[in-house]
């Protein structure tokens, strides 16, 4: 068995894996809202800062 069969099959298989991942992503609604997540990703850190240091949230966030 020639190696080309193996290589091409593997490459197609990998491509199909990505394709399935895409379908799953669309199905779960990830593409319905393409704006909010981009804002949300910036929030996490700031939440922690305020809850840990009640007194000096202003100095912290200017860093």
């Amino acid at each position: 068995m020639s190696v080309i069969y193996l290589l091409i099959s593997v490459s197609i298989f990998v491509a199909i894996c990505f394709f399935i991942a895409f379908i799953v992503a669309v199905k779960s609604g990830q593409y319905d809202d393409d704006y909010t997540p981009s804002v949300r990703i910036l929030f996490d850190d700031e939440t922690k800062i305020t809850s840990q240091n009640n007194n000096s949230p202003i100095e912290e966030k200017q860093v």
């Binding site: 394709f19 379908i23 669309v26 199905k27 319905d32």
Partner: peptide, 15 residues
């Protein structure tokens, strides 16, 4: 229901 068929079709076509 959200109609996502066009997204699927484009995905398949691109693949």
């Amino acid at each position: 229901k959200v109609d996502r068929s066009l997204t699927y079709k484009v995905g398949v076509a691109f693949f």
